[in-house]
Amino acid sequence: MVLLFAALSATTQAQVTATIAQAGFGDLRPSDGFLVQHLQHGPVSIGELADKLGITAQGVSKTVIEMERKGYVTRTASSGDQRRRLVELTSRGWEAIYASRRARAEVNRQLRASLGPGAPAFLDQIHHLAEATGAVTLLTERRLRP
């Protein structure tokens, strides 16, 4: 069962990634989403991102610099401390989020259609498994790791 979930995850993620690329965001990697998810509520410091992602500030800085070069985020000095850099989404970053949401919604629609009339019961069982394993908590608390 684990291999089936892994295979389904890989193929659906590839489908989402391809759709996002077709929408004009082909330079994004799925792992960029782990950083972006923490920027949706406003600017966040490099240190805070490092804590949330469980990686070093140097690792976050490298990703932020790359994403800034691509136009998805911007860095600004904190008004209270010029040494503290805040990262926030640009309009292109928000457009990528919306494209990602549309792509995931379409994949979800296709999966539900494939399940037919048994979809609600099956999805309830999947949700139960996700809760029992702690996956729902990790997802809702934005603590899933790449």
Rank of each mutant, 00 (worst) to 15 (best):
Q22A: 15
T12G: 00
A96Y: 03
T90I: 08
R92Y: 09
I46P: 00
V36S: 05
M1A: 08
A14K: 11
F5N: 05
G118K: 10
A57W: 03
S61A: 06
I97Y: 13
A132N: 08
R69M: 01
T133V: 13
K52S: 07
H128N: 10
G134P: 07
A103D: 05
Q13A: 07
V2G: 15
L86G: 03
R145C: 10
R84S: 06
I97G: 01
E66N: 04
M1N: 05
G116H: 05
G93K: 02
P146R: 15
Y72T: 01
E68A: 11
D81V: 02
T137D: 14
S79C: 03
S91C: 08
Q37V: 08
Q58V: 10
R83H: 14
V16I: 14
W94T: 07
T11S: 10
E131V: 14
P43R: 01
S9K: 02
L28W: 12
I126S: 06
D124L: 11
L111Q: 03
I55E: 03
S78E: 04
G116C: 05
A121P: 01
S61V: 00
D27T: 15
L4R: 14
D32T: 08
Q15D: 14
I65F: 13
T63G: 00
A113G: 02
A96S: 15
T90R: 05
A10F: 02
G134D: 15
A135Q: 12
L86R: 09
F25D: 01
F25M: 05
A121S: 09
R75D: 02
T137H: 13
G116R: 09
R112N: 06
G93L: 06
L115K: 03
Q13H: 08
Q40F: 03
V87W: 08
G116D: 01
E95V: 02
A57D: 11
Q22Y: 04
I65C: 03
G118W: 10
A130L: 14
D32W: 08
D51C: 02
H128R: 15
H127D: 13
V2H: 12
Q40M: 09
K70W: 00
T76Y: 06
R92I: 10
L123I: 07
R109V: 01
G118L: 10
Q125E: 12
Q110C: 05
A21T: 05
A23M: 07
Q40K: 09
P43D: 04
S100Q: 06
H128S: 14
T133K: 12
G116L: 04
A14Q: 12
Y98M: 12
P146Y: 13
G59V: 04
K52Y: 10
F25E: 02
I20E: 00
A113Q: 13
W94I: 09
R84G: 02
T63P: 00
T63V: 10
Q15R: 06
I126E: 05
Q82F: 05
D124W: 05
M1L: 07
S45G: 09
V136C: 13
G59W: 01
T12Q: 09
I20F: 01
L3E: 14
E106L: 09
G33I: 04
Q22H: 11
R85V: 06
A21D: 06
S31G: 06
F122V: 13
E66K: 12
G47V: 00
G24N: 11
E106A: 10
Q13K: 08
G33D: 04
A14M: 05
E141M: 13
